[in-house]
Design a protein around this nucleic acid. Structure first.
Lengths: 145, 145
DNA sequence: CTGGATCCCACTGGATACTG
DNA sequence: CAGTATCCAGTGGGATCCAG
């Protein structure tokens, strides 16, 4: 995981708008400046239904379209295509077309895309560790007047 | 992001149970057992438009409704209410009502909610570190035939 | 001040059929 | 095989008005 060093923090504030947890978000610094936009962008990408799952599936592998379809249960052909295009556009995965018959296209993580793996791991770890507590909280919330 | 209903979400590869970046999954290929649901749940919560931002804003603070409205530029009253309810239901934030006139309600992170901060930090760090690369990749992608 | 109730639209994403 | 094109339902989320 690459850490954002001090460089990013100096982007936004001259007014004591420090944000140890989430740079540029606390104390109502503008959301539309660089830092806020960066986070929103990443959340928009990673937060959608299939992107992170796709990243995780491609980890260390080089898979073709039909393989991805099989390895990701529930995804439609359309969403696989769209998600792959998005990720390719963002430079997170690479697409290689082989001029063969029948056609063959392989996808793999770029170096940049690979750096997402630790993030996926962090999210996965948190989910596994705390999901029981969340479910319990939900049950309690739903059961009370 | 919508909840995955009947759709399964195993992170498996063709043969065997590769965990594809979600470590603790080593031996659970099925999906409705906690693991897949846990990750999907967390992504559904963290991936939506305002939750993580709200968590970050509440970090170490105890804020009332109107303060949150001001500190989170762009959020609507409705979405603030809805997001707060969701997070409260999941036991991530606590809601304290003071019987005063005018009414006062304060929100703060629960202990469980506080454990999300490192995750937010990881995402934020990644975003700040790699957003330039993503923007560059997009520009290049859009500029090519 | 807090936040519920409504209306409404844009967008996400699923199913299906078609093509190079 | 690897998509593209079309249609369509559900819903996320903004604006607004109303209430305790």
């Amino acid at each position: 995981m690459t850490r954002a060093k001090g460089t990013s923090m100096s982007l936004t504030h001259s007014d004591g708008c420090d944000t140890a947890g989430f740079p540029a978000y606390e104390n109502s610094c503008s959301v539309d400046d660089g830092a806020g936009r960066a986070i929103r962008d990443v959340l928009d990408r990673v937060g959608d239904k299939w992107s992170l799952l796709l990243i995780a599936t491609l980890r260390g592998d080089r898979l073709r379209f039909s393989e991805l379809l099989k390895h990701i249960p529930g995804i439609s052909q359309r969403m696989l295509t769209l998600t792959l295009r998005q990720l390719e556009r963002d430079g997170l995965i690479s697409r290689t077309v082989y001029a063969e018959v029948p056609p063959r296209v392989e996808y793999e993580l770029t170096e940049l895309g690979g750096t997402l793996i630790p993030m996926a791991r962090t999210i996965g770890d948190w989910a596994l560790a705390n999901h029981p507590a969340i479910e319990e909280a939900r049950a309690e919330y739903d059961a009370r007047p």
